[in-house]
């Protein structure tokens, strides 16, 4: 395992953003606790997971890419199943699961059906948001038929659980040439309205496929109008942003906002700038499962710390 801290490269020496970026790359997961805006690693995932979690726990899985069969992982359905088996083995049953998109690779009906068959084995409620790979069927209807009930626009919605307000956002439609992920005006207006009237002490979780913060624009890893969404959550005491799309764990804390991206259950992608493109990264077979995984997020009520545990399929 390796992790490193670095400051925002675009604004060297600028302390305004108080940016601390940590990246857990290969190997064993780390339990993160956030106190006073600074994430601290508490220990390896095995000892962390063994501790009895207090408060509400939910899971994040992402980027299953069911149907993917290229050299980086010829059996994406198989590794999704391994991830779900990990979920089933968690001693304290999580409240629910979120899936941050790219359920399928090519939006084929059979891919959606296979994903559903495996994910449903976790016997948890699953709240989905779509990735760009879930909207590429000819009529762009298969995702919406399955997961669009009760959602607005291209599939955004909110719900409350365990005293936390969850908002699922869609930033993979109507993308503009040369741009990044896109939320669009209609969704942003809805978000502003959705958050109105919520007590500022309510913890808020925003989840979407493409990172809402700018990770690496050269590879399109960011959301054009993500800053507007973050503007609406500014006054809230605790905000957590959960994303997928980049197939690796990255974490950043900025003021009251913790940003986190999850591993894929299908294949890893390179660290920004370390490869010619963000395409699937072929690693030795023995290393693959150390780079795929699931995340557990634990909210402790009436207490500051928020814990995100990233568990690879194989440590």
């Amino acid at each position: 395992m390796s992790h490193h801290d670095h400051h925002d490269d675009e604004n060297p020496g600028v302390s305004r953003r108080r940016v601390l970026e940590c990246m857990t790359w290969a190997g064993t997961g780390v339990l993160w606790t956030v106190t006073g805006g600074v994430p601290r690693s508490l220990g390896l995932v095995d000892s962390a997971a063994a501790a009895e979690p207090a408060g509400m726990t939910f899971l994040q899985i992402s980027d299953s890419h069911v149907g993917f069969d290229k050299p980086a992982n010829p059996n994406a359905l198989g590794t999704l199943e391994e991830a779900i088996n990990k979920v089933k083995a968690i001693p304290t049953k999580p409240s629910f699961m979120i899936h941050t998109g790219d359920i399928t690779h090519l939006s084929k009906a059979a891919e959606f059906d296979n994903a559903e068959r495996i994910i449903s084995q976790a016997k948890l409620d699953v709240h989905y948001v779509p990735g760009e790979h879930d909207f590429i069927d000819e009529e762009v209807k298969l995702y919406k038929e399955r997961y669009g009930k009760g959602t607005k626009g291209a599939g955004w919605y909110s719900f409350d659980a365990g005293g936390v307000h969850f908002v699922g956002l869609v930033n993979v439609v109507d993308l503009k040439a040369g741009g990044l992920g896109n939320l669009g005006n209609e969704q942003l207006e809805w978000l502003e309205d959705d958050l109105k009237g919520k007590s500022k002490s309510t913890p808020v979780v925003l989840f979407a496929h493409i990172p809402l913060w700018t990770v690496y624009p050269q590879w399109g890893w960011g959301t054009e109008d993500g800053a507007r969404a973050l503007e609406y959550v500014k006054g809230f005491g605790s905000v957590t942003v959960l994303n997928g799309h980049i197939h690796q764990v990255m974490q950043k804390v900025e003021g009251n906002v913790t940003f986190h991206t999850a591993r894929s259950t299908a294949f890893p992608q390179p660290v920004p700038g370390t490869a010619p493109s963000p395409g699937p990264m072929k690693v030795e077979d023995a290393k693959l499962r150390g780079l795929l995984g699931v995340a557990t997020i634990n909210f402790k009520q009436n207490n500051q710390p928020l814990a995100i545990i990233d568990t690879p399929l194989q440590g």
Binding site: I136, A177, G178, P217, G220
Partner: peptide, 10 residues
């Protein structure tokens, strides 16, 4: 033209 899935591709 661009790729509608990866709009940074133009």
């Amino acid at each position: 033209y661009f790729c509608s899935l990866h709009p940074h591709m133009t």
